[in-house]
């Protein structure tokens, strides 16, 4: 299976073997005919009811989704034009989706509405509240407007430095936010969570709790040994080496557990796609 999953689409796509071309063509024709039959019968059954049009679009949608699903899955057999078409559609549609969402949800209410509130109110957001300080809002909104245009300058062939200004702003803001947050939520809070009594007692009976104690000791030993492993300023020899090795064991168990949980996630995603095919598309479950 050396060809499978390779990133060299050229030859296969340009000149698919006749048998494969036939296979894909017949699959497409078969699918389209079944689809046409199903939709025609659905439309006939519902007559000229206004809800029928909606149902028809839903039916078309489910068939479309099924083809997209099968198109992506077909890559498992081998790279093929059907998969590549689906992939190309995904790239185009998702880029437009993000852009449209950014435009209507953020740019219109948080930028254009400050620059030209009356126009925005007339066109898109009739209920937009009137600001108490429209002048200041407008003046302040020019900053992201200018920075935004400078950011888009990246697309221009020349003047690359222009886009560095907004980039510097984005990096600076992120750094300012993250510096405080990572120290507070991660460094300090996690250190505090590590430093805790090693001997545990049952809260209700106040008796010595063996397993809770083992847990507490394990937690502290785990954090310290893994940190030792990450500490490269001292050579990992002797006691430091042994601790670092314990740290590696902790990490391996951590990754093993993470792997198990990841597998679970992936399987769920596939299960949902099969559910869709069997239930919504074929109606056999």
């Amino acid at each position: 299976m050396s060809d499978h999953g390779s990133n060299e689409p050229g030859p296969q796509v340009q000149a698919p073997r006749k048998s494969y071309r036939f296979l894909w063509l017949s699959l497409a024709v078969l699918g389209l005919s079944v689809f046409a039959l199903r939709t025609a019968s659905a439309a006939q059954a519902q007559g000229a009811d206004p809800a029928a049009a909606q149902d028809l679009w839903k039916t078309i949608g489910i068939w479309c989704a099924a083809f997209m699903t099968l198109g992506i899955l077909s890559f498992l057999y081998k790279d093929n034009p059907f998969y590549k078409v689906c992939e190309s559609i995904l790239i185009g549609v998702s880029a437009a989706y993000w852009m449209v969402n950014g435009f209507w949800s953020t740019l219109v209410p948080n930028l254009f509405a400050k620059l030209a509130p009356t126009t925005v109110r007339e066109i898109a957001l009739p209920d937009l509240p009137v600001s108490a300080t429209p002048g200041t809002d407008m003046a302040l909104a020019f900053v992201p407007l200018v920075l935004g245009f400078m950011l888009l300058w990246r697309l221009a062939p020349r003047g690359g430095w222009i886009a560095v200004w907004p980039l510097a702003f984005i990096i600076g803001t992120t750094a300012g936010m993250r510096l405080v947050a990572s120290i507070e939520a991660d460094l300090l809070a996690q250190t505090v969570a590590t430093v805790r009594p090693l001997v545990a007692f049952d809260k209700a009976t106040e008796a010595f709790d063996f397993w809770a104690t083992v847990g507490a000791v394990t937690s502290v030993a785990g954090v310290l040994s893994v940190l030792t492993y990450f500490f490269f300023s001292v050579e990992h020899k002797g006691a430091v080496g042994a601790t670092a090795r314990l740290g590696v064991w902790f990490l391996m168990i951590t990754f093993g557990s993470a792997f198990g949980l990841t597998v679970m996630g992936r399987i769920t995603l596939l299960a949902q796609r099969f559910e869709f095919l069997f239930k919504e598309w074929l109606g056999i479950v």
Binding site: A185, A189, Q190, A193, T254, S257, A258, L261, T262, V263, M264, G265, R266, T268
Partner: peptide
């Protein structure tokens, strides 16, 4: 949380 992200979030439970 998704299965993939669980590891990243475990240190925050149950305090944060």
């Amino acid at each position: 949380s998704t299965g993939v992200q669980v590891s990243q979030l475990l240190p925050y439970y149950p305090k944060q």
